[in-house]
Measured scan of single mutants.
Amino acid sequence: EFTQISGYVNAFGSQRGSVLTVKVENDEGWTLVEEDFDRADYGSDPEFVAEVSSYLKRNGGIKDLTKVL
């Protein structure tokens, strides 16, 4: 089950073990991109978060400006 990723309007994530599946949706709710990120592939949590965040930004993730990150 996908849940909204904090700080984004149209990005959602689903966690299974160490694998986080993220997706970005358009205004109609269609999935634009979907990608798996395995936490085990990264040396640290900040590196993992930075990679996921960068992916979302590159692929149309819209920041939720009503929330302070």
Rank of each mutant, 00 (worst) to 15 (best):
residue 2 F to R: 07
residue 2 F to E: 04
residue 3 T to W: 13
residue 3 T to A: 09
residue 3 T to G: 06
residue 4 Q to Y: 08
residue 4 Q to K: 14
residue 5 I to Y: 07
residue 5 I to Q: 03
residue 6 S to A: 12
residue 6 S to I: 11
residue 6 S to V: 11
residue 6 S to M: 11
residue 6 S to R: 12
residue 7 G to C: 15
residue 8 Y to I: 05
residue 9 V to D: 03
residue 9 V to S: 08
residue 9 V to K: 10
residue 10 N to D: 01
residue 10 N to Q: 04
residue 10 N to F: 06
residue 10 N to H: 07
residue 11 A to K: 00
residue 11 A to H: 00
residue 11 A to V: 13
residue 12 F to A: 01
residue 12 F to C: 09
residue 12 F to P: 00
residue 12 F to V: 05
residue 12 F to I: 03
residue 13 G to R: 07
residue 13 G to V: 12
residue 14 S to V: 13
residue 14 S to A: 12
residue 14 S to W: 14
residue 14 S to K: 15
residue 14 S to G: 02
residue 15 Q to F: 15
residue 15 Q to M: 14
residue 16 R to F: 06
residue 17 G to E: 03
residue 17 G to Q: 02
residue 17 G to W: 04
residue 17 G to F: 06
residue 19 V to D: 00
residue 19 V to M: 05
residue 19 V to Q: 03
residue 19 V to Y: 03
residue 20 L to D: 00
residue 20 L to Y: 08
residue 21 T to Y: 06
residue 21 T to D: 00
residue 21 T to A: 03
residue 22 V to Q: 01
residue 22 V to E: 00
residue 23 K to G: 01
residue 23 K to A: 03
residue 23 K to E: 01
residue 24 V to D: 01
residue 24 V to S: 02
residue 27 D to L: 12
residue 27 D to H: 11
residue 28 E to F: 11
residue 28 E to M: 12
residue 28 E to P: 04
residue 29 G to M: 02
residue 29 G to W: 03
residue 29 G to F: 04
residue 29 G to E: 03
residue 29 G to V: 04
residue 30 W to L: 13
residue 30 W to S: 10
residue 31 T to V: 12
residue 32 L to F: 08
residue 32 L to R: 05
residue 32 L to A: 06
residue 32 L to V: 11
residue 32 L to T: 08
residue 33 V to Q: 06
residue 33 V to M: 08
residue 33 V to F: 12
residue 34 E to F: 10
residue 34 E to S: 12
residue 34 E to Q: 14
residue 35 E to K: 15
residue 35 E to L: 08
residue 36 D to N: 12
residue 37 F to Q: 01
residue 37 F to K: 01
residue 37 F to H: 01
residue 37 F to V: 00
residue 37 F to W: 01
residue 38 D to F: 03
residue 38 D to T: 02
residue 39 R to G: 01
residue 39 R to L: 04
residue 40 A to Y: 07
residue 40 A to W: 07
residue 41 D to R: 09
residue 41 D to F: 08
residue 42 Y to I: 00
residue 43 G to W: 06
residue 43 G to C: 13
residue 44 S to H: 02
residue 45 D to T: 10
residue 45 D to P: 03
residue 46 P to A: 15
residue 46 P to L: 15
residue 46 P to Y: 15
residue 47 E to R: 03
residue 47 E to D: 08
residue 47 E to Y: 03
residue 47 E to I: 05
residue 48 F to W: 07
residue 48 F to Y: 06
residue 49 V to I: 13
residue 49 V to A: 11
residue 49 V to E: 14
residue 50 A to T: 07
residue 51 E to Y: 10
residue 51 E to A: 15
residue 51 E to C: 13
residue 51 E to R: 10
residue 53 S to W: 11
residue 53 S to F: 13
residue 53 S to D: 14
residue 54 S to R: 13
residue 54 S to E: 14
residue 54 S to Y: 10
residue 54 S to F: 09
residue 55 Y to P: 01
residue 55 Y to F: 15
residue 56 L to G: 00
residue 56 L to N: 01
residue 56 L to H: 00
residue 56 L to R: 01
residue 57 K to V: 09
residue 58 R to T: 08
residue 58 R to Y: 07
residue 58 R to K: 11
residue 59 N to Q: 05
residue 59 N to K: 05
residue 59 N to H: 12
residue 59 N to T: 04
residue 59 N to D: 00
residue 60 G to M: 05
residue 60 G to T: 03
residue 60 G to W: 09
residue 60 G to D: 02
residue 60 G to H: 05
residue 61 G to P: 04
residue 61 G to A: 15
residue 61 G to T: 06
residue 62 I to R: 09
residue 62 I to N: 04
residue 62 I to Y: 07
residue 62 I to Q: 07
residue 62 I to F: 07
residue 63 K to W: 12
residue 63 K to C: 15
residue 63 K to S: 09
residue 63 K to Q: 12
residue 63 K to G: 07
residue 64 D to E: 10
residue 64 D to G: 08
residue 64 D to H: 07
residue 65 L to M: 11
residue 65 L to P: 13
residue 65 L to F: 13
residue 65 L to D: 11
residue 65 L to W: 12
residue 66 T to H: 11
residue 66 T to C: 15
residue 66 T to R: 09
residue 66 T to G: 09
residue 66 T to K: 10
residue 67 K to I: 14
residue 67 K to H: 13
residue 67 K to E: 13
residue 68 V to H: 11
residue 68 V to Q: 10
residue 68 V to F: 11
residue 69 L to C: 15
residue 69 L to V: 14
residue 69 L to W: 07
residue 69 L to K: 10
